[in-house]
Amino acid sequence: MTDHVEVTGRGAHHVVPDLVIVRARVQCDARDVASALTESSNRTAAALQAAADHGVEARDRRTDDVGIHPRHDQNGRKVIGYTAYQAFRLTVRDRDRVGDLLQALAGAAGDALAVDGIEMGADQTDEAVAGARDAAFEDARLRATRFAGLAGAELGKVLHIREGGADDHTPRPMMARMADFAGSMPIEGGTQAISTTVTVRWELT
């Protein structure tokens, strides 16, 4: 078997966030399951329609989670009703429209609306993903070079390479520092990195 060294490198490509991600949910109470689910569904539909009316495209409107659970009396014994919820995520490509969008969502869903988070994001472009892979490969090469030196050998040809490695990472966004948003609302911004890992096996010569 050919002598070889296999290492995992990690790399990231930094990009300027240009999207706003709004994570919200609609939560409704009712005495029975059917009513709670119906009310939650209707208000969620109204909120999503409001988002569409304010320029959020269909590809940028996504429902994330739905559920229902019972509500009990103060003693925790008797079921007095049910709470149904529907979570959704909106990707806003025009940052200046977020304030108006939030008002529209509140108007459509009423007091059933809760905003769980607002943060900056960026598209994972081919260029950014390629940059992260290149950085990860270079990190792996430097590590492998050090190991080869300790063994009194040099790196030869690449025998095998795969993306993922020990941590099974694929290109993904990593949020960074806080930034200010319209109305002094804090959201994630500043720097964002598309990160990944690659595992590379080199022949030793």
Score class of each variant (00 low, 15 high):
Met120Tyr: 08
Ala108Trp: 01
Phe147Gln: 15
Glu154Arg: 13
Phe88Thr: 00
Val56Thr: 00
Ala36Gln: 02
Pro171Ser: 08
Ala45Trp: 02
Gly99Pro: 03
Gly165Ala: 15
Arg10Ala: 07
Ala104Gly: 02
His4Ala: 13
Asn75Cys: 02
Thr2Lys: 05
Ala30Cys: 01
Arg23Tyr: 06
Glu39Asn: 05
Val198Ser: 03
Met178Gly: 13
Met120Ser: 14
Ile80Ser: 09
Asp29Leu: 06
His160Met: 04
Ala136Cys: 14
His14Tyr: 11
Gln192Ser: 10
Glu39Lys: 09
Val79Pro: 03
Val5Ser: 05
Pro17Ala: 05
Ala36Asp: 01
Gly189Pro: 01
Ala176Trp: 04
Val158Met: 08
His69Arg: 11
Ala136Thr: 09
Arg141Leu: 15
Gly55Ser: 03
Ala30His: 00
Arg146Met: 12
Thr205Ala: 12
Arg146Trp: 11
Ala193His: 02
His4Ser: 15
Ala122Leu: 06
Met120Arg: 14
Arg201Leu: 00
Met175Lys: 10
Asp139Cys: 07
Arg141His: 14
Ala30Leu: 03
Ala148Lys: 00
Arg97Ile: 05
Glu203Gln: 15
Val5Trp: 03
Ala193Gln: 09
Phe147Leu: 15
Ala136Arg: 05
Thr91Met: 08
Ala34Ile: 07
Gly81Ile: 06
Glu163Arg: 11
Thr170Arg: 13
Pro70Asp: 14
Glu138Thr: 09
Met120Leu: 15
Ala128His: 01
Leu155Phe: 11
Asp96Arg: 05
Val129Leu: 04
Gly131Ser: 09
Arg172Asn: 07
Arg95Thr: 12
Val26His: 01
Ala166Pro: 02
Ala153Val: 03
Ala109Gln: 04
His169Cys: 12
Arg146Tyr: 09
Ser195His: 14
Val158Ile: 14
Ala153Trp: 05
Asp65Asn: 08
Arg23Pro: 03
Ala182Val: 14
Ile68Pro: 05
Val56Ile: 07
Ala47Arg: 03
Ala84Ile: 09
Val22Ser: 02
Val22Gly: 01
Ala84Phe: 06
Ala109Tyr: 00
Ala179Thr: 11
Tyr82Met: 07
Cys28Glu: 06
Val129Met: 15
Ala176Val: 06
Cys28Ser: 12
Ala179Cys: 06
Gly55Asn: 02
Asp65Leu: 15
Ala136Lys: 03
Gly110Phe: 06
Gln74Tyr: 07
Thr63Asp: 11
Ala140Trp: 06
Thr205Asn: 09
Asp100Gly: 07
Met185His: 12
Val92Lys: 00
Thr83Val: 15
Asp134Cys: 09
Asp94Met: 01
Asp167Cys: 09
Gly156Glu: 00
Arg43Ile: 08
Glu163Lys: 10
Ala104Val: 00
Asp94Thr: 15
Asp180Lys: 12
Ala128Ser: 12
Ala179Leu: 05
Gly165His: 04
Met120Phe: 11
Arg25Ile: 02
Asp60Cys: 08
Ala176Arg: 02
Asp73Arg: 01
His4Asn: 06
Val66Gln: 14
Gly121Ser: 15
Ala136Gln: 08
Leu204Arg: 02
Leu37Ser: 07
Arg201Cys: 05
Thr2Met: 07
Ala179Ile: 10
Ala106Gln: 07
Ile194Leu: 10
Gln103His: 08
His160Asn: 13
Ala140Thr: 13
